[in-house]
């Protein structure tokens, strides 16, 4: 396996919690790997599985969906809908042969800057030995 590979992670972060959490990590001057491309969304419940598949299709080595903790959703229950949808996608991807580590979900609140950095560090660590994601990646 290619241990030199620097994985590219697309992270869908909810505006109210996880994106704020990543800001918290920044203002707290916590260090974490620069492999992540954050995309702020209004709610984890607004992330369509299509976005995730499309991220893989356009070259992501890993995709993270992160929202508010249960009960904290700005829209009351958006994250609960997301949880159902992502649970099924999480089962579907390894079924077709994609490494389960490549798609992850987390709850990160606006205060959890440290947790955010830990999740990213851990994600990068898991992805590195897997090498580039080629199964869903479009190569023309």
């Amino acid at each position: 396996m290619n241990s030199e590979h620097e994985p590219k992670i697309v992270a869908f972060l909810c505006k109210w919690c996880s994106s704020a959490g990543s800001d918290m990590a920044g203002v707290s001057r916590l260090e974490y790997p620069s492999n992540v491309i954050p995309i702020t969304v209004m709610c984890s419940g607004s992330v369509s599985p299509l976005y995730i598949l499309s991220a893989f299709n356009l070259g992501a080595d890993g995709v993270l969906v992160s929202g508010c903790h249960p009960g904290d959703c700005h829209y009351i229950k958006g994250n609960m809908y997301a949880r159902r949808r992502m649970a099924l996608l999480k089962e579907l991807l390894p079924y077709i042969g994609l490494e389960p580590e490549r798609f992850q979900m987390s709850w990160v609140s606006a205060a959890e800057g440290l947790k955010f950095t830990q999740i990213i560090k851990e994600f990068v660590k898991q992805l590195k030995p897997l090498g580039p994601q080629t199964q869903l990646r479009r190569s023309l």
Partner: peptide, 23 residues
């Protein structure tokens, strides 16, 4: 979202999207 060409990657995405939409 998905190229019209029947490339393997595009076929994968098409069938996965369809599967998840039918869940």
């Amino acid at each position: 979202w998905i190229e019209k060409s029947p490339l393997l990657s595009e076929n994968f995405v098409y069938h996965l999207v369809r599967a998840i939409h039918l869940a």
